[in-house]
C-alpha cells in the first residue's frame, strides 16, 4: 500500500488534484470504506485526495422546497438531525442503521453515495425520497437524479474528476407516511439482506402518491415507477399491496451473496414490500 496523500484545504484545490490525477486518484472522506478496500488490496490508487480540510461541506440546510445536505455530513449527524427526523424520518432511520456508532460518526453521506455499496442503508431511503446529487469538477457542475447516479455494482455516474458537492432531498407532500424496513437474515447487527423504503400520501383512504425503493437485494437499489403507479388513486387493499409487491419481486434482478440466494431475496422483496405498504396504509408515519 503506497500512495501519495493530498490534503487540499479548498474545493478548487481538491478539484484540481482530481483533474490532474484522474483515474489514479481516490477521494478520502470518512475513510470507513476506502481504508478497508486499501487494506484488502481491492484498489491501489497512487493518490488519495482527502477532502476533510475543505470547509463548508458538512451542513444540513432546510429550504422551502426540501433540504440540502453537505457531502461531508456524517451519517451520525443525519441520524440525529431534528430537521431530518421531522421531515424525513425514514432517512434518519436508515442513516442510524449503518454499521455501529463509531462507523456512523466517521462515515459521510458523500462517501456513502460515491461508494455505491449495494448493501448500505441510506441509498435506498434517498432513492425513495427522490434525491438529487450535485457533482462538481473544474469543467463545471451538474445535478444527477440518484437513480441515474447509482449505475451498477459499486459503480456511479461520477467522473474521476468530479466530487459530490451537494445532496438535495425534495420535500415530500404534507402528511406523507414513510417507513424504512431493514431485513437482516443473520445477526441483529448484520447488513441488510433486503430493505424497503416507502413513502405514501393519502387523501382519506385513497393513495395519491406512492414511492417504493428496494435495496440490498440487487446491484443497485431500485424504484419501479410503473409499479408504484398502480397505487395512484386507489385504496391500498391487500390485493393491491400483493400486486405491487409481486411487481417488485418479479422485476428486480436479485443477486446472491452470503446473506441469501437470489431466490431468497426475491421472496424477501415480496414479503417486505407487503409489510412496508401495510404499515403505510395502517397509518404509521
Amino acid at each position: 500500500m503506497s500512495f501519495e496523500l493530498l490534503q487540499p484545504d479548498s474545493l478548487p484545490g481538491a478539484l484540481k488534484a482530481l483533474a490532474q490525477h484522474g483515474d489514479e486518484a481516490k477521494v478520502l472522506a470518512g475513510g470507513t470504506a476506502i481504508v478497508l478496500m486499501l487494506q484488502q488490496k481491492l484498489i491501489a490508487p497512487t493518490v488519495l485526495v482527502s477532502v476533510g480540510r475543505i470547509p463548508d461541506l458538512a451542513y444540513i440546510r432546510s429550504e422551502p422546497d426540501g433540504i440540502h445536505v453537505g457531502p461531508l455530513t456524517t451519517l451520525r449527524d443525519m441520524e440525529r438531525s431534528l430537521v431530518i427526523q421531522t421531515h424525513f424520518p425514514l432517512l434518519a432511520q436508515a442513516s442510524g442503521e449503518v454499521g455501529n456508532i463509531r462507523v456512523r460518526n466517521q462515515a459521510t453521506l458523500g462517501g456513502n453515495l460515491a461508494e455505491a455499496d449495494y448493501a448500505s442503508d441510506p441509498p435506498t431511503a434517498l432513492l425513495a425520497l427522490g434525491t438529487q446529487v450535485t457533482a462538481t469538477s473544474l469543467r463545471g457542475e451538474r445535478t444527477i437524479p440518484l437513480e441515474d447516479f447509482l449505475i451498477g455494482f459499486y459503480t456511479t455516474d461520477l467522473e474521476p474528476d468530479e466530487l459530490i458537492t451537494d445532496v438535495f432531498i425534495p420535500a415530500s407532500a404534507p402528511g406523507s407516511r414513510t417507513t424504512y424496513l431493514k431485513y437482516r437474515s443473520r445477526s441483529s447487527e448484520d447488513r441488510p439482506c433486503a430493505c424497503v423504503a416507502a413513502i405514501a400520501a393519502f387523501e382519506a383512504e385513497t393513495c395519491t402518491d406512492l414511492r417504493v425503493a428496494v435495496g440490498a437485494a440487487s446491484e443497485v437499489p431500485q424504484r419501479l415507477p410503473a409499479v408504484e403507479n398502480l397505487a395512484r388513486g386507489q385504496a391500498l387493499t391487500d390485493e393491491l399491496i400483493g400486486e405491487i409487491a409481486a411487481g417488485y419481486a418479479d422485476n428486480i434482478d436479485t443477486l446472491e451473496d452470503i446473506r441469501g440466494s437470489a431466490w431468497y431475496r426475491t421472496q424477501m422483496i415480496r414479503i417486505h414490500v407487503v409489510r412496508a405498504l401495510e404499515e403505510l396504509r395502517n397509518g404509521r408515519r
Partner: peptide
C-alpha cells in the same frame, strides 16, 4: 440454520431454482 434454509424447509423445497 439460516433463515433461507428454514424458509425452504417450510415451503418444502430444497432446489435452488428461482
Amino acid at each position: 440454520l439460516t433463515a433461507e434454509k428454514v424458509l425452504r424447509g417450510i415451503q418444502g423445497r430444497t432446489d435452488h431454482e428461482r
